[in-house]
């Protein structure tokens, strides 16, 4: 379980290219590195909930990204903060 302050990378995975799915990880974060701010709690996996399948509770993290790693333009120092499920994160 990543601790606050840990560097993580969002998995560069595109399930939508393999078939019907419901994912809460925005495309613009995939493959990008950020820092875990905190564990927000555990929530039923939306990828299963959306299809009425039994959904395991998975850890959800607040992950902070420097906006310059997401897009070339914009002010250095500005940030994007998003909720990302643990199974989408790998060690950076």
């Amino acid at each position: 379980m990543p601790a606050p302050g840990q560097r993580v990378r969002v998995r560069d995975d595109w399930p939508e290219t393999r078939g019907p799915c419901h994912i809460r990880t925005p495309h613009y974060l995939r493959g990008r590195e950020g820092t875990v701010l905190r564990h927000l709690g555990d929530f039923p996996n939306p990828e299963d909930l959306a299809f009425a399948r039994p959904a395991a509770r998975l850890p959800l993290y607040h992950v902070l990204f420097d906006r310059t790693v997401l897009w070339p333009e914009g002010r250095a120092g500005d940030e994007v903060l998003a909720e990302v499920f643990g199974h989408w994160l790998e060690e950076a």
Partner: peptide, 27 residues
């Protein structure tokens, strides 16, 4: 975000960081 904020009349000084919070999941 800064372009969008300016259209709402919100112009932030350079020393203020903008943190965009994307509500992607359960909160």
């Amino acid at each position: 975000p800064r372009g969008l904020l300016a259209e709402f009349g919100t112009v932030l000084p350079d020393h203020v960081r903008v943190r965009v919070v994307d509500s992607t999941a359960d909160y």
